[in-house]
Simulated scan of single mutants.
Amino acid sequence: MKAKYSRYLLEFKRPSGTSRGVLHEKETFFLEVEDNGNKGIGECALFRGLSFDDRPDYEEKLQWLCEHINEDPIYLKEELKEFPSIWFGYEQAVLNLKHGNHLYFPGEFTEGKSAITINGLIWMGDIGYMEEQIQEKLDKGFHCIKLKIGVDWNSEHEILRKLRAKFSKDQLELRVDANGGFSKDEAKTVLKQLADLHIHSIEQPIKAGNWKDMAELCSETPTPIALDEELIGITDSLEKKKLLETIKPQYIILKPALVGGFASSDEWISLAEELNIGWWITSALESNIGLNAIAQYTFTKKNPMPQGLGTGSLFVNNFESSLELRNELLWFKKE
Rank of each mutant, 00 (worst) to 15 (best):
G37S: 00
F88K: 04
E27T: 14
L194Y: 05
A195M: 13
E173Y: 12
G278D: 14
Q133H: 06
W268M: 02
N36P: 04
I247Q: 10
E229Y: 14
E156G: 02
L65I: 04
T300F: 05
E328S: 13
I69S: 03
S265W: 10
P304L: 03
I145T: 04
W64A: 09
L50C: 02
Q193N: 10
I232K: 07
S264Q: 15
S183T: 15
K301T: 08
A284T: 03
D152H: 06
F332Q: 00
E274D: 15
P222G: 08
N70V: 10
Y297E: 00
E286L: 03
E27V: 14
M305Q: 11
K166R: 12
S114C: 09
W123S: 03
E220C: 12
H24F: 10
S155K: 07
A272Q: 11
D57V: 07
R7A: 14
L50N: 08
R20I: 03
G120H: 00
I116N: 01
S237M: 14
L10T: 01
L191H: 14
L46P: 08
G180D: 15
G112E: 00
E320H: 11
K13V: 06
I269R: 06
L238G: 12
F88L: 07
S237F: 14
K77L: 02
L285W: 11
L103P: 02
F142P: 00
E27P: 06
S6T: 10
E230T: 11
D126R: 12
L10V: 06
L10G: 01
M130H: 00
K188Y: 11
P73K: 04
L309D: 00
L62M: 12
K4M: 12
S283E: 00
T189E: 15
K61I: 07
E216S: 09
N154A: 07
L62G: 06
L238E: 15
M214C: 10
H143D: 07
Y104P: 05
E335H: 11
E274H: 08
R7P: 04
T246R: 06
W280S: 03
N276H: 15
E320I: 01
Q171A: 09
L258F: 05
V259D: 09
Y90V: 07
F83S: 05
M214S: 09
F29D: 06
I127H: 01
E25D: 14
N119V: 05
I202V: 15
V176G: 01
L194C: 04
F30A: 02
W331K: 00
D126V: 07
L50R: 12
C218Q: 03
N154M: 09
Q63I: 10
S16R: 11
I74Y: 10
K98Y: 12
Q63T: 11
K2S: 10
G310M: 00
P205C: 12
N327Y: 02
D57H: 09
K162D: 02
A115R: 08
F332W: 12
E111Q: 08
E43V: 02
H24L: 09
L243C: 15
G125M: 08
N179V: 12
Q135N: 12
I122M: 09
F29N: 13
